[in-house]
Design a protein around this nucleic acid. Structure first.
Lengths: 237, 237
DNA sequence: CGATTGGTTGAGCCCATTCAACGAATGTGG
DNA sequence: CCACATTCGTTGAATGGGCTCAACCAATCG
C-alpha cells in the first residue's frame, strides 16, 4: 500500500494515461487525481480484487494485466460479464448498491491503481472535466454491456466466437500489442461462459476456423490470419 | 415545448419524484433541477423519442407510459435492450459517444421530461448529492444490463420468460400497479427479441405456464396466479 | 369489407448441448 | 527423477431444445 517516493508511479507519466481515468485532464488536474490514488498494487493471478457482496468503497483501474468479472446467481449459475484489459476500470457496477455485485479475478499477475470513491466524487466537484469524463466512462460500460446483449441475444455460436476474437484483436491493437497474435489469458470455459456457449462448442468452432484458414490455434495462442473474413463471419446472420 | 404556468408540472409535486432524477434531493434542490427541465412532453405510441446516430444533447425521464430501446446492428439484426417504465431514464448510453446508440420507441402514449445534458452537468457541480445520485443511476443501468447478460447467457427459454414476468411484476408493484395483473405493452415479438427467443417460443411457453396454472393468458393481459412457483422456474437451472 | 397486424399451434429439422473418451501440459510429492 | 493427479483442451456420437416453416384465427383499421 505504501509507494516508495523513488518509484514516481504517477498517472502523469503512465503509459496508459490517455486510456485511463486521467484521460483528457491537464497536468495540473492529473496531479490532483494522482495524489488521491494508490498506484500499481500487485494482484496475483487467480486472486480476487473484490468479491460479490463486499462493501464498496473504491474503484480500480487496471495498470497492467487483465481481469475477468463474474456474477453469481442464487441458484449457482455464473456469468462472466467481461474481460478487462489495461486502462479499463473495475467496480463501476458497485456504485449503485454500495456493494460489489460481481467478483473481479486476475487472469494473470496484474497491477491496479485504486481510488476511494469518496475521493473521486470530491475531485469531480473540483475538476469539471473529470465529472464529464467519469460520466462517459460509466456510459461506455453501458454501451459495452448492450453490445454483449446483442451478441447473446441474436448471434449464432460461430458469430459470437468471431466477434470475440475481433473485439480482442482491436483492444490488443489499441494497447500497442499485436492485433493478430492473440495470447488468450482465459480458459475455453471462461470464453464459453462469457459467450453463452459450452466450452466444447468454443473449442470446436476455433478448430473449424483454423480449418478454414481464418486463424491458427496453438492452445491459448491464436493467430488471426484472415481478419476480413473473420469480421465477415460476425455479420453473416 | 411550452409549459402553461397554470399546469404547475414541477418535479416537486410529481408522483414519481422519489423514483426519478430528483430522488434524494431536498425541495430547494429539486426546484433548481425543475427549472432546467421541460416537463411532460407527450410522445405518441410508436413514435421515436430519439434514434440511433442522432446527436445527443438531452436526457429524458419517463413521466408516464413506457418505452422500448433497440439497437440495430450493421447487418440488420436488432436487439431490444430494455423496456422502460415511469421514473426510468432514457439516453444514458448516449453520453459516451455524444450520439444516440439506440432507438427509443414509445410503447403507448407517454410523457417524458427532458433535461439538457449540459444543464445536468452544471447542476451536478452545484448540487453535490445530484452528482452522486446520477452516478448511481448510471451504475444501476450497468447492473441491470449485466443481469440480462446472465439471463441471455445461461438461462433456458422457460426460465427467461418466467424471469421476465417476475421482473415486470415487481416493477409494476413498485409503481402502485397490480403485481399480478400485468397489462403487457409490447408484442410477443418484442419480448422474444429482448429475451433472445423467437416469438413462437414465447407464445408456446406462455401457453405452457397457463396450462400449469402459473398464469392466465388473455392476449396481452397476463394474470399471475402462482408467483412463488413462477419464481422457482427462474431458478430451476 | 378486405388488408394488416398480432397471436397460437403443429410438424420437422438443425444447431448447440450432453456425455464420453482421450491427449497434452503442468504441478506435486515421494 | 519419476509416478501420479489435476487442469485444460480436443474430438466424436447421440440427444434435444428452440427454430423454421406453415396454417390458422382474432382484432383492428382504413
Amino acid at each position: 500500500m505504501k509507494i516508495p517516493l523513488t518509484q514516481k508511479s504517477l498517472c502523469g507519466c503512465c503509459v496508459i494515461r490517455e486510456r485511463c481515468l486521467p484521460a483528457g485532464l491537464n497536468d495540473e488536474e492529473v496531479l490532483l487525481l494522482d495524489q488521491q490514488m494508490e498506484h500499481r498494487l500487485p494482484i496475483k493471478k487467480g486472486a480476487l480484487l473484490y468479491s460479490q457482496g463486499q462493501v464498496f468503497d473504491s474503484l480500480y483501474a487496471i495498470s497492467t494485466g487483465s481481469f475477468k468479472t463474474r456474477i453469481l446467481h442464487e441458484d449457482g449459475r455464473s456469468q462472466i460479464t467481461g474481460f478487462q484489459l489495461s486502462g479499463e476500470m473495475l467496480g463501476l457496477d458497485a456504485i449503485s448498491e454500495e456493494r460489489h455485485v460481481c467478483d473481479a479475478i486476475a487472469l494473470e499477475d496484474s497491477t491496479v491503481c485504486k481510488i476511494a470513491y469518496d475521493s473521486l466524487t470530491n475531485l469531480e466537484s473540483e475538476i469539471n472535466p473529470l465529472q464529464r469524463s467519469f460520466n462517459k466512462t460509466l456510459s461506455k460500460e453501458i454501451v459495452r454491456d448492450q453490445s454483449i446483449m446483442l451478441l447473446l441475444g441474436s448471434m449464432r455460436a460461430e458469430e459470437r466466437v468471431a466477434a470475440f476474437l475481433v473485439n480482442l484483436s482491436e483492444r490488443y491493437h489499441a494497447r500497442q500489442q499485436s492485433a493478430s497474435e492473440l495470447v488468450l489469458r482465459m480458459t475455453r470455459e471462461d470464453i464459453g461462459n462469457y459467450l453463452g456457449l459450452k466450452l466444447e462448442t468454443v473449442s470446436r468452432i476455433l478448430s473449424r476456423f483454423a480449418q478454414e484458414n481464418l486463424i491458427n490455434v496453438q492452445g491459448r495462442l491464436i493467430t488471426i490470419t484472415d481478419v476480413k473474413q473473420l469480421q465477415l463471419v460476425t455479420l453473416s446472420s
